[in-house]
Simulated scan of single mutants.
Amino acid sequence: MGAVHRRTMIAALAAALAAGGCAAPPEGVEGGGALLVLPGPVGGSDEPTEADGYVPVGEGLEVDADVPALTGLDPKLLAAVREAAADALDSGVDVVIVTGGWRSERYQEHLWEEALREHGDEEEARRWVAAPDASSHVHGDAVDIGYTNAADWFSRFGYEYGLCQTYANEMWHYELTVDPGEPCPPPLADASEERGGAPGHKGRGR
């Protein structure tokens, strides 16, 4: 599905939820919830690849996968995600996958340019996608978690591992924001607020 046209994450998710069309859990998995995924890159000869951190649409990655989207993450973040995922599975969550991790600047540029086309101006685009020089994904400081019940588990218990939901409009996006066990700061409304330097946040967008 690498050649499908991308929409912004929120537009795709909203449309899928409205239509009841979020990706189903893998066969044999019960109660996994909807799959939260970033739509695929624009088609073309230079579209992002696995080496850019691209995660196949509708698939996601196991948290122990040995691919750039995961190995490019900050080691402390990756370790926290893997520990949290193991505990989530032990607590009854059926599946924990990563739908987005480290991204190359080239991949992020694709996402940013598509957001500009979709929303028409930088101010609105920044609510959903960051330019490459401002993206926490490019710096290896953010991870996107799916399915919805896994993301919900992370939102409730991620603080025990230092993981916090960064934005209120992105239940899938987590960063290593606090020391393990400390309470998470309230999520920012969206990525455009990151530039305000809110306490407890690193100052980058998605």
Rank of each mutant, 00 (worst) to 15 (best):
E114Q: 13
M1T: 14
I145M: 05
L111E: 12
Y54V: 15
A142C: 06
W153T: 05
Y159C: 09
D121R: 12
L36S: 07
E109Y: 04
D94I: 00
A23N: 01
R206D: 15
D90H: 08
A16C: 08
P187F: 00
M1S: 10
E109I: 10
H139R: 15
R156C: 05
W153L: 02
Y167M: 10
E105N: 07
P132Y: 05
P39V: 15
E175C: 13
P25R: 06
L73W: 02
E113T: 14
H110R: 05
F154Y: 04
V42P: 04
E193I: 09
L188M: 13
R106G: 13
S45E: 11
D74K: 12
V129R: 09
A134F: 09
G31F: 00
R103Q: 13
R206S: 14
G2I: 15
P199S: 08
D94L: 06
L111I: 13
E182G: 10
G181I: 04
Y147A: 05
G100C: 10
P183C: 07
A14Y: 07
G203W: 00
T99W: 01
E122Q: 07
A88T: 01
A24Q: 08
A15G: 06
E83H: 11
L116G: 11
G197Y: 03
E114T: 15
G181S: 06
E175W: 07
G43K: 04
V37G: 00
Y161Q: 02
A80N: 02
G101M: 08
Y159S: 14
S45W: 07
P185Y: 00
I97E: 10
V143Y: 00
M171K: 15
S155N: 04
G162D: 00
S192Y: 08
A16D: 09
H5T: 14
G158R: 03
V138C: 05
A14E: 09
D179Y: 08
A12C: 12
E50L: 12
D152F: 05
E193K: 06
A3H: 05
D66E: 14
H119F: 07
A34W: 01
G146T: 12
E175Y: 02
S136V: 11
V178R: 10
Y54G: 04
G31M: 04
V81F: 03
Q108Y: 11
R126W: 04
D141P: 00
S192D: 13
A3W: 02
T148W: 01
A84Y: 02
A15V: 02
L77G: 03
E83Q: 14
W112N: 11
L89W: 01
L17F: 03
A189L: 11
D144G: 08
L73G: 05
D64L: 15
Y107A: 15
R117H: 06
V29M: 05
R117A: 10
V98M: 03
C22G: 14
R156K: 12
A168H: 05
D46Y: 08
V4T: 11
Y147V: 01
G44W: 02
H137N: 09
P199K: 10
E62Q: 15
W172M: 12
L61F: 02
K76A: 15
L78Q: 10
H5Y: 13
D152N: 14
E47K: 10
A125Q: 09
L38Y: 07
E109W: 06
A125V: 09
R7H: 12
S104M: 07
A198P: 13
I97Q: 13
P199A: 10
P41V: 13
A16V: 12
L89G: 06
A51I: 09
G58E: 03
A14Q: 15
G101E: 09
W112P: 11
E30G: 11
